[in-house]
């Protein structure tokens, strides 16, 4: 399959089942809601080293948040509900509680819940106040700029993590421009995040390493500088490969994101140095979800 001169490889992205939650952070204005959300989703690129993968889903206008203030929706993905809950509490207490004028609310409903403000409330040292409003328990924790409002818990659900596609370009600059275009287009899609810096990752990995302590290591098949010494997937005319990793609440959300992202990449096409679009997988043996590029782009 060739789109605008760019070859779409006959391959698939392999993704895994994860657990996900959504929280809504509000503040006096979007600037401060973003500050809190960015702090909370910092160091959350991969569960391998960060414990959780998180990102900003979108900005919410004042009318769409629980307390009627400008807000930001954050999605967070973990390998289990327990791991997710542990990270969520840490990040709320260190990044959201500390951010001026912030408040945090559950962003999804469901039977399975993890703590949001349940333990953060103890920061109130006995001065915290509980309010049960419309069946939602909120904690009012006195802080130096007034009160921090945190809903007691939020639901989590099964989700999909690790959807991806690779952009193979003549130069790093061209690959980056294509990825930026893809991320810009994908940012409007609900229920997905691209957890890496700017949504783009250059250190695509494989499972395992020659070093026993490492669970993952560089994917040499896509490292251009190793073309001559490995079974490389990088053609001669490609000098740079970048990857966009997508986590979504459902596989359909990821499909939609891949389609949108690859469309944006192919819009630049071979004329802008984009030679191929490929995807990362582990031979189909590890992940439950397979996203075949050509099926998605058909």
């Amino acid at each position: 399959m060739i789109v605008n001169g760019t070859t779409i490889d006959n391959t698939f992205a392999e993704a895994f089942g994860m657990k996900a939650t959504r929280v809504v952070i509000t503040a006096l204005n979007h600037r401060w809601a973003r500050h809190a959300a960015q702090a909370m989703t910092g160091f959350a690129t991969s569960v391998i080293g960060c414990g959780v993968e998180a990102g900003i889903e979108n900005e919410l206008p004042a009318g769409e948040t629980p307390d009627g203030r400008p807000g930001v929706s954050v999605l967070m993905f973990g390998m289990s509900g327990k791991a997710l809950g542990k990270q969520l509490e840490k990040r709320v207490s260190q990044c959201v509680l500390t951010s001026p004028t912030s408040a945090v609310f559950a962003g999804m409903c469901g039977e399975k819940c993890i703590n949001l403000g349940r333990n953060v409330r103890f920061f109130g040292d006995g001065y915290q106040i509980s309010k049960l409003i419309d069946g939602h328990r909120c904690w009012r924790i006195p802080v130096m700029d007034g009160e921090f409002i945190a809903e007691e818990s939020t639901a989590y659900c099964s989700a999909v993590g690790g959807g991806n596609f690779l952009v193979l370009a003549e130069s790093t600059q061209q690959a980056l421009i294509a990825c930026e275009a893809a991320i810009d287009a994908m940012q409007d899609i609900p229920n997905v995040i691209m957890p890496f810096p700017g949504g783009v990752v250059r250190s695509g990995s494989k499972v395992g390493s020659i070093y026993k302590a490492l669970p993952a290591s560089t994917n040499q098949a896509f490292c251009p500088t190793l073309k001559g010494m490995t079974r490389s997937h990088v053609p001669d005319d490609v000098e740079s490969v970048l990857e966009i990793v997508i986590n979504g609440l459902t596989d359909d959300d990821i499909r939609r994101a891949i389609r949108t992202g690859v469309d944006a990449v192919c819009a630049l096409g071979a004329g802008q140095g984009i030679k191929r679009v490929s995807a990362g997988n582990y031979g189909g043996k590890l992940g439950q979800f397979h996203f075949h590029l050509r099926e998605i782009m058909a």
């Binding site: 629980p66 009627g68 309010k131 409003i133 419309d134 007034g146 009160e147």
Partner: peptide
């Protein structure tokens, strides 16, 4: 007090 908007809603 921010919680008042939740309460009034």
């Amino acid at each position: 007090l921010g919680f008042l908007s939740l309460l009034m809603d």
